[in-house]
Structures are given as structure tokens and as C-alpha cells.
């Protein structure tokens, strides 16, 4: 193995010397048979796809919106499926619902969702159903604010933005049990 590794490293060194500065700065760790065909990409170039929002708010973009601003957008783009006040229609309810979920159903934003950031992340990537990814960040903040206010999880005049959204205390946040902690 040792001689194999040395030969591979020597080959990579030669490759990096002949292929310019980019590879020289980041030599590939010489996987035995890998053709090494991944193309380097800068953080700027991959940013349009880097849409993950973490529970602590990491990844949230600039912008912000209020429940009132969200109400107008909701009427235009969401109410057809989710009902005029978010009470549900051909798609699930976003506001209200039973106080607790059970095996009979009733997982709601208010009684189940652990983090408000999930609302922003999912709405931005997956909604509206027929035009996912079409909402601006400001629109997504405003819609998040409208839905959170409708569930009385924030006040009617609160602005949701990168600082405030992760701070919204979701009632069910601490009610989850990691099933197999030893496997993580």
C-alpha cells in the first residue's frame, strides 16, 4: 500500500505541476482508480443552488416581510390551493387545526413543525406547486410572516427576516426523540 500511495502521489504531483496553479493548490488525494473528473467550482458559481436553510438561520438571505404584505401575496399565489385564509383546500391547511397531532392526523405548523426556518426553506424551494422557485426572497419572508401570524406564533406587525425568523419559538420544538442516536 505504501509504495502504491507514493506512486500515486508522485503522479498527482506531476499532474499538478503540468496542469497549472488551481490543481497545484488543491492536489487530489489520489483515490486508486478514480479518473478524478470532478470540475472545481467556486462558491460564487454554486451559490444559486446552495439554498439550504439551517434551523439556526444559516443560509437565510437578505430581505424581510410582514404579515400584511404576505396576505396580499397569499391571496394571489397560494389561496387557490390552501384556502383564502390558509385554512386548507385541495392542499393542506397552513393555519389552525387541532391542538395536537395524533395517528388520526393533524400535524400542523403550530402543533408540530419544530423550526420556523423550515417554512422559509420549503416555501422557497417547492412553492407555489405549479411554479416552484418563482417567489422572491422578500415574498417568502412575507408569506412566512403571514402564516406564522395566522397561527399566532408571531404578532401581526412583526417583520420576518434573517434575524427574527430563527428566533420564533415553535411550540413543539423540543418534543422529538432521535430514533437511533447511535447511528448518527
Amino acid at each position: 500500500m505504501f509504495t502504491h500511495d507514493r506512486a500515486a502521489r508522485a503522479a498527482m504531483l506531476l499532474l499538478s505541476l503540468t496542469c497549472g496553479a488551481a490543481l497545484a493548490q488543491a492536489p487530489t488525494p489520489a483515490p486508486g482508480l478514480s479518473p478524478g473528473l470532478g470540475k472545481p467550482i467556486s462558491l460564487e458559481d454554486l451559490a444559486p443552488w446552495d439554498i439550504s436553510i439551517m434551523p439556526d438561520g444559516t443560509g437565510l438571505p437578505p430581505g424581510g416581510g410582514t404579515p400584511a404584505q404576505g396576505a396580499a401575496i397569499f391571496t394571489e399565489k397560494c389561496a387557490l390551493c390552501h384556502g383564502d385564509k390558509g385554512q386548507g383546500g385541495i392542499a393542506g391547511a397552513l393555519v389552525g387545526g387541532p391542538p395536537r397531532a395524533s395517528l388520526d392526523g393533524g400535524k400542523t405548523i403550530a402543533n408540530f413543525w419544530p423550526y420556523a426556518t423550515v417554512l422559509f426553506d420549503f416555501t422557497r424551494r417547492a412553492m407555489p406547486f405549479n411554479a416552484p422557485g418563482s417567489l422572491s426572497n422578500t415574498e417568502v419572508y412575507a408569506l412566512s410572516a403571514f402564516i406564522l401570524a395566522g397561527n399566532k406564533l408571531i404578532g401581526e406587525n412583526e417583520t420576518m427576516d434573517a434575524a427574527s425568523l430563527p428566533k420564533v419559538k415553535m411550540p413543539n420544538r423540543d418534543n422529538f426523540i432521535v430514533r437511533f442516536p447511535e447511528r448518527i
Binding site: 439550504s52 395536537r100 397531532a101 408540530f112 419544530p114 430514533r179
Partner: peptide, 26 residues
């Protein structure tokens, strides 16, 4: 850290009889 996306934070968290829910069943 895990993202806790919609599908793991909500959909694939299994409600239990006592009202708690499993997470990361996998």
C-alpha cells in the same frame, strides 16, 4: 448539522401515542 428539511422535520417524523415524535428514524 442536519438541515431539518420539511421532509425530516415534519413528514418523516413519526407521531407516537404520547404526542412526542421520532426523528431521524432512517
Amino acid at each position: 448539522e442536519p438541515q431539518l428539511s420539511y421532509y425530516e422535520a415534519r413528514t418523516y417524523s413519526q407521531i407516537l401515542p404520547n404526542g412526542q415524535a421520532y426523528r431521524f428514524y432512517f
